[in-house]
C-alpha cells in the first residue's frame, strides 16, 4: 500500500529530514509515526501526499510512484488518499455538508450519489445535525470530524492523519481516535503521525519511531517508549 525505498529528503535550506528510510505499510494496517518535532514524521506524510519530492529513493503509494510522477497526476494520487490535518483545513466559505460534498464533486460523482453518501458519512462521524453549519461555528472536535468525513467520503483505501488530535482536548481526541479505529476495522489502511504518548500506548498498534530522520524502531503492538530501552535504563 505504502512503500518507502531508501528515501532521503534534503530540504533546500540544507536540513536533512530523512536519510535512507525503508518502510512498508500493508493493506489494512494501522500505523503510528512517532517521534519528537523535527524527527521526520511530517516529512514522511508530506512525501506520501507528494507535497514534497524525494531527494533520493522511491515512494510508492496506492500504486503511484510518487517520486517520479508528473505534476498533472498529483490530483489523482491525492484523491486515492483520505487526509486529515492537525489544523482541520476545512473550506471556511462552505457548510459542513458542502465541505464533504466537495471531495465528491472533484471526482465528478453523480449528484444523486452525493446526496446519498454525504448524509451517511456525516451520520457516521455524528454530525448529521450540523450539516448546514459553517466550520467557524463548530468546536475543534467537530471540525476534525468534518475533516474525517471529507477524507472518508470517497472510500479511500488509505487514510493519512497528521497530528489529528494536536489541537484537541484529551476527551475529544479519544473520540477521533476511536473513529479512526472503527474505520480501520472496516478495512481502511490508516497512518497517524502523532506525539501523544497516551494514545499510542492505549491503542497498541504498529509503531514506527523516528529520530533525526531515521527509523529507530518499527514494532507491532508497540508503545510510545521503547520497553527494552526502559528496561535497560532501569537496570
Amino acid at each position: 500500500m505504502v512503500k518507502f525505498e531508501n528515501v532521503t529528503k534534503l530540504y533546500e535550506n540544507g536540513t536533512l529530514a530523512l536519510s535512507g528510510v525503508n518502510l512498508k505499510i500493508n493493506k489494512g494496517d494501522f500505523a503510528f509515526f512517532i517521534g519528537p518535532s523535527g524527527s521526520g514524521k511530517s516529512t514522511l506524510i508530506k512525501l506520501i501526499l507528494r507535497e514534497e519530492e524525494t531527494t533520493e529513493g522511491d515512494v510508492i503509494v496506492n500504486g503511484f510512484n510518487v517520486s517520479t510522477m508528473r505534476r498533472k497526476d498529483i490530483p489523482h494520487l491525492r484523491r486515492s488518499i483520505g487526509v486529515v490535518f492537525q489544523d482541520f483545513r476545512l473550506l471556511p466559505g462552505k457548510t459542513v455538508y458542502e465541505n464533504v460534498a466537495f471531495a465528491m464533486q472533484i471526482v465528478e460523482a453523480m449528484p444523486k450519489e452525493i446526496r446519498r453518501r454525504v448524509p451517511m458519512i456525516l451520520g457516521l462521524v455524528g454530525l448529521s445535525k450540523k450539516a448546514s453549519a459553517y466550520p467557524n461555528q463548530l468546536s475543534g472536535g467537530e471540525q476534525q470530524r468534518v475533516a474525517l468525513a471529507r477524507a472518508l467520503v470517497n472510500n479511500p483505501a488509505l487514510l493519512v492523519a497528521d497530528e489529528p488530535t494536536g489541537n484537541l482536548d484529551p476527551e475529544t481526541s479519544w473520540g477521533i481516535i476511536k473513529l479512526l479505529n472503527d474505520i480501520n476495522q472496516m478495512g481502511t489502511t490508516i497512518i497517524v503521525a502523532t506525539h501523544e504518548k497516551s494514545i499510542v500506548d492505549a491503542m497498541k498498534k504498529r509503531v514506527i519511531a523516528l529520530s533525526k530522520g531515521e527509523i529507530i524502531r518499527d514494532q507491532e503492538k508497540g508503545l510510545y517508549e521503547n520497553e527494552d530501552k526502559n528496561h535497560e535504563i532501569h537496570n
Partner: peptide
C-alpha cells in the same frame, strides 16, 4: 485572501482547472 482555501482544495485532490 483565499489562498488557503485554494491550498486545501489542492490537498483533497482537486485539479487546477477545477
Amino acid at each position: 485572501a483565499r489562498r488557503r482555501e485554494i491550498n486545501i482544495m489542492k490537498y483533497i485532490g482537486a485539479t487546477d482547472l477545477f
